[in-house]
């Protein structure tokens, strides 16, 4: 089983994501200009500042040639995970509902947060149980998940919330404490916290590994 981790100009977490993936399977970097995802079985869109985050976060990266292939891969049911800037890119690309706005407090945040698994049935959460609280860091300026009222109702009633900030730990003003959502099918998931930074006891938590283990498990079943 092999993960592909995208690299845009301005990505900065792709190496951590690559190393996290390699703890559980094979993994390789995919350059944003590549028109081919090769033989990867799952795709990670990593954090950073793709294309300088100019215009709006994630808005330009969605038009990268590799992203066109990711859209096809996702439509065919392939597992896709967007982390932080990768989450913003997947929202801009229309793969995930909602948008990310500047943090309520306008400040860059970097801290460990509790992230509750609300839905353990997706390709990226199956190694956890519903109700588990993972300790994972956030680090972002534009992480306030938002959807207009009708879309928010739809996301909640379809059960598309995968992760919520633990009670009292919402760092950025995200609606309904939403930290991560999925598409209707459950193969595409995005979240603001960084699971790839929580894979070694040296940095305080290995809870982030569960997301990568989930993909391995999901692919083993299919």
């Amino acid at each position: 089983m092999k993960f592909g981790v995208l690299r845009f100009p301005g990505s900065c977490d792709e190496v951590d994501a690559l190393l996290a993936c390699r703890r559980v399977a094979d993994a390789e970097i995919i350059w944003h200009g590549d028109d081919d995802l090769g033989d990867v079985d799952a795709v990670v869109v990593p954090g950073g500042f793709s294309y300088g985050d100019y215009l709006r976060v994630g808005s330009i990266a969605r038009f990268a040639p590799a992203m066109e292939r990711v859209l096809e891969f996702a439509a065919a049911g392939g597992p896709v995970l967007g982390i932080c800037n990768g989450f913003q890119v997947l929202c801009e690309a229309g793969l995930l509902p909602g948008a990310l706005l500047p943090n309520e407090g306008l400040r860059f945040l970097c801290r460990q947060v509790g992230v509750e698994v609300v839905d353990a049935e997706t390709a990226w959460s199956g190694a956890s149980r519903t109700g588990d609280v993972l300790s994972i860091p956030v680090k972002h300026t534009t992480g306030r998940w938002f959807a207009p009222p009708d879309l928010l109702d739809e996301v909640e009633s379809n059960g598309q919330v995968v992760f919520r900030y633990a009670s009292g730990e919402n760092p950025n003003g995200s609606l309904n404490d939403i930290a991560g959502v999925r598409n209707e099918r459950g193969n595409v998931v995005g979240l603001m916290p960084h699971p790839e930074h929580a894979v070694d006891p040296l940095t305080g938590s290995t809870d982030g590994l569960r997301l990568f283990e989930s993909a391995v498990r999901a692919l083993a079943v299919t």
Binding site: R56, S59, A99, A147, P148
Partner: peptide, 8 residues
């Protein structure tokens, strides 16, 4: 398509 995100 690009300059505006109509959701927000």
């Amino acid at each position: 398509k690009l300059l505006v995100n109509p959701l927000i």
